[in-house]
Design a protein around this nucleic acid. Structure first.
Lengths: 351, 351
DNA sequence: TGTTAGCACTCCATGATGTCGAGTGCTAAC
DNA sequence: GTTAGCACTCGACATCATGGAGTGCTAACA
């Protein structure tokens, strides 16, 4: 029996109505409300019966006897997987996203930041964009530039069009000419390797280099050994204040919990990626709902994420984070469209 | 009559006690409480009389008849200016600050970020560090580095030891040799000018250059004209979640207000600088209390800030932001000490 | 004259009580 | 299988009483 056929048509109808109503009003929904709001050709009593069934099977729950019903995680899940009709973005919304992102077409980091900003703005949730995984970016160029007697800048340009500069302190001054030769040497040797593997590659090549180009290699190693070993992947996050407007956060305890979570970047990265294992990581958005993420101690939040690609290869994820009660039909659209747009712009930047 | 002598000794004693008590408990303070807590050699009745006087002169207020007293902005102001005994940091606290900051001694940006983090951690408020004003940093070096056929990285190293890299798109490829010559030319011409004046300087030198070194200058201008015109000054801010632990933010409306403020970087910069005009911008911290900042629509927050220096010249400010009810004696110490430490480390970095 | 004890009063916080309305489950009728 | 009717439940909200912390005022005291 496929999971979809767990429910008959009427049950599907009612479940969809309950979720829909709750998502928009944040109020527990009763049988009367539902027939009026959706002009069902059923009496409240019938709806009540069906709702009782749905409660028994675990799709709905009551906060207390004689209160209206609220979707459970299972209910949301069924809704997201089988019931919800994706809400297409209007032309003007699509244009807005395209316009605001195209503005930042100079710099990959700016583009990511703007994307998270836009996600927050459009969805009224918190927008999150994970920077491309370092494995997906290759070193295009390495340059050593002297900036003072005892300091040099190491400039690394990668295949995504990003440029990172790191300062290294030199034990003894290296003449500019020498640095230029070093740069040339490093460029020849290191171009094309993934940025994540820089330090490892250095070690791997060491023997070889030392044998062939002793003096140059020794100096290069000495300088590059000073590179900080892989900073944490940046995460672009915006819209905390927006998020707090949601009525669920009138409860300050919940608000504090989420604010705390947003301060811990590492856990956010986990959350972003949590959806991947769950969904079949297809072309489209994945949704992690409430309790499903409870292992991380936050049972009241959901995330909708989607991968973005460079040259067809998924290199990172973006999405929105908000309370469990989210307008999923709209959010999946927004997130998918934004991911597609970001992919397109990145391709243009790197092409 | 000096402002200090507005109050007689007993009034000073009582005011100090009220502020002190309120700061630590967040509860309105009554006459009984005060005599017990501070073991005053006075009866509650006497204290009551004095408190009534202080209320009349505007240093204290009641939330309602027969509630305890709470300091007004004026009360806090008097306390901060004349009554509070600066609470020296313990040796271990000073060492902690020194240790955690010294770790990040490689990179000015890291250092600033770490400073804001530390401020938040130590004070349980939000830590804010403003990046050095661009006028205070001179261009040390400019380099143009080709990163692809149609893009070049412009690397600008400044006198504070920072390195900024910006990408510019080239209309037509420029050979590497040519870029090197351009770099040399720009270095000769632009080294030593304030980074804030780059674009202006470019325009100012244009005539001159075009006359003397026509080809080089034309190309240089064409490339550098693409530099984004001065990004907003970065602000390093941390500890929002910490701040929300304060009891005043149990009121979600206030919490939202502050969260909104923290999202608006420009207004924060204003707030940070607001103290400067008020205090005589001496060596030490300045305090902006509650209503004093109300022009900006946030009457419930205070900021304690202090300037930090490079080579003896104030180049930026750092501080903490929190509810009006703050432990000022401790915060001024922390902020001052942190500013001094940051100044020292910056000097070492740039020296 | 300044300080204190005493006392009546005020007001908030807390908890108990009652009412209203939205919603339910169940039963019986259609 | 569906619906109408009805008794019931529970939260939200208002009302009310109580206790405690605190005040202002007055009169007595050193």
């Amino acid at each position: 029996m496929s999971p979809e056929s767990q429910l008959n048509d009427r049950e599907k109808l009612i479940l969809r109505a309950v979720v829909h109503s709750y998502i928009t009003t944040a109020e527990p929904v009763g049988s009367r409300t539902i027939v009026k709001r959706f002009q069902l050709d059923l009496s409240p009593a019938t709806v009540r019966n069906t709702m009782a069934d749905l409660e028994e099977t675990g799709f709905l729950k009551q906060l207390h006897t004689s209160s209206g019903r609220v979707p459970t995680d299972l209910g949301y899940r069924y809704y997201v997987d089988y019931l919800m009709r994706v809400q297409e973005l209007t032309l003007s919304e699509r244009q807005r996203i395209e316009r605001e992102l195209s503005e930042k077409l100079n710099d990959v980091d700016d583009l990511m930041r703007q994307t998270s900003h836009l996600l927050a703005l459009v969805t009224h949730q918190t927008g999150i964009v994970e920077a491309p995984a370092p494995e997906s970016a290759e070193v295009r160029r390495i340059d050593l530039i002297p900036v003072s007697d005892n300091r040099a800048a190491v400039l690394i340009a990668d295949s995504l069009g990003r440029v990172r500069t790191t300062l290294v302190a030199l034990e003894e001054p290296i003449p500019a000419m020498e640095l230029t030769r070093l740069s040339g040497f490093l460029n020849d040797e290191l171009a094309g390797i993934p940025t994540s593997g820089l330090t490892m590659s250095l070690r791997a090549h060491m023997q070889e280099w030392l044998y062939e180009q002793r003096r140059l290699a020794e100096q290069a190693l000495r300088v590059l050994d000073l590179l900080p070993a892989g900073r944490p992947e940046p995460l672009f996050l915006e819209g905390t204040a927006q998020l707090m407007e949601q009525p669920e956060f009138n409860d300050m305890a919940k608000a504090r919990e989420v604010l705390g979570l947003l301060d811990e970047r590492e856990r956010l990265v986990e959350l972003l990626r949590a959806g991947v294992t769950r969904a079949e990581s297809g072309a489209h958005s994945s949704v992690v709902i409430g309790l499903e993420a409870a292992e991380m101690g936050h049972e009241d939040i959901s995330v909708v994420t989607s991968p973005y690609r460079v040259q067809g290869k998924a290199v990172g994820r973006l999405g929105v984070l908000g309370p469990r009660r989210m307008p999923y039909p709209r959010l999946t659209s927004v997130v998918d469209y934004t991911a597609a747009m970001l992919s397109r712009l990145l391709d243009r930047l790197t092409g």
